[in-house]
């Protein structure tokens, strides 16, 4: 077993543990923290089904963002939907046999990488071009985009290559799959010593590690946002939690 394989095996075990434990810890905190008062942004649904529909639209088509700003929506939605397809496609490296849906999405997932990178470039451009967005941007916001771009571009280079510089046939994807299945079943296989692949994998591991301590928490967070997930039923159903549950007057 080479030092390279051991390093990457340990890197991915660590990254997976940090991602899983970190995100579950946050979800646990969100779920446990009380929402003492009802604060849905109205008009809000008056039933739980209605709230599920509101949330579904929010996370699939970014309804509020669409109402807000068409440029951010185009770039943001393009990035996220492309990322979704790309992630789905990548499941082929973790499943044997490959699921039908993953096989079906393969051709779209391949080219979605370009849409993903285009969306990221659009979002990054706004951080320089729009003075308001430039003002609110921290160094971490730039680095996050750089990280995601690095992942996207290194992936594209592996898949499609650049004539004379990167040969797409170079990466042994069968060995990559063997490496990841090996990690999953604790039967380690060598990681291919391909520069572009190692860059790609390193950046992905970094993303997994920073996920639970960064703004990427918006992914689980949105489901817990009281202004979006509360039912508008204040008069019909009495709500108490946290400090409002502490002392109930009761009726005389």
């Amino acid at each position: 077993m080479s030092a390279l394989t051991i390093t990457y095996a340990l890197l991915f075990y660590t990254a997976t543990a940090i991602l899983a434990i970190g995100v579950f810890r946050k979800i646990f905190i969100y779920a446990r923290t009380p929402a003492p008062l009802l604060i849905p942004t109205t008009p809000a649904p008056t039933t739980a089904t209605g709230v599920a529909w509101r949330m579904f639209k929010e996370v699939t088509v970014f309804e509020s963002l669409f109402k807000s700003n068409k440029w951010i929506w185009i770039f943001g939605w393009m990035f996220h939907i492309a990322l979704f397809l790309v992630l789905l496609r990548h499941l082929r490296y973790f499943t044997e046999p490959v699921w039908t849906v993953v096989a079906l999405v393969q051709p779209y997932g391949k080219y979605a990488a370009f849409a993903m990178v285009a969306g990221l470039l659009g979002l990054w451009a706004r951080r320089f071009v729009v003075d308001r967005v430039r003002y609110i941007t921290n160094l971490s916001d730039h680095l996050m985009l750089l990280l995601l771009l690095g992942i996207g571009v290194s992936g594209i280079l592996m898949k499609f290559g650049i004539a004379g510089i990167v040969d797409p046939a170079h990466t042994d994807i069968v060995a990559v799959k063997a490496f990841f299945l090996g990690l999953m079943y604790f039967d380690w296989q060598p990681v291919p010593a391909d520069t572009m692949l190692l860059i790609h994998l390193t950046l992905v591991a970094v993303l997994m590690i920073v996920f639970p301590i960064s703004k990427l928490l918006h992914a689980p967070g949105v489901f817990f946002s009281p202004s979006r997930n509360q039912v508008d039923s204040a008069r019909e159903k009495r709500h108490v939690a946290g400090w409002t549950a502490a002392q109930t007057p009761g009726s005389k």
Binding site: K26, I29, Y30, T33, P34, A35, P36, I39, S64, L65, S68, N69, I72, G76, L123, R126, V130, R132, V133, I136, T137, N138, D141, K215, L217, H218, G221, V222, F224, S225, P226, S227, G242, W243
Partner: peptide, 17 residues
């Protein structure tokens, strides 16, 4: 004591909307 604060302080991505 407030899920709203807990979530709102974590989730902003500085999108500018």
């Amino acid at each position: 004591g407030s899920r709203a604060l807990q979530v709102f302080l974590d989730t902003c991505v500085k999108c500018g909307a």
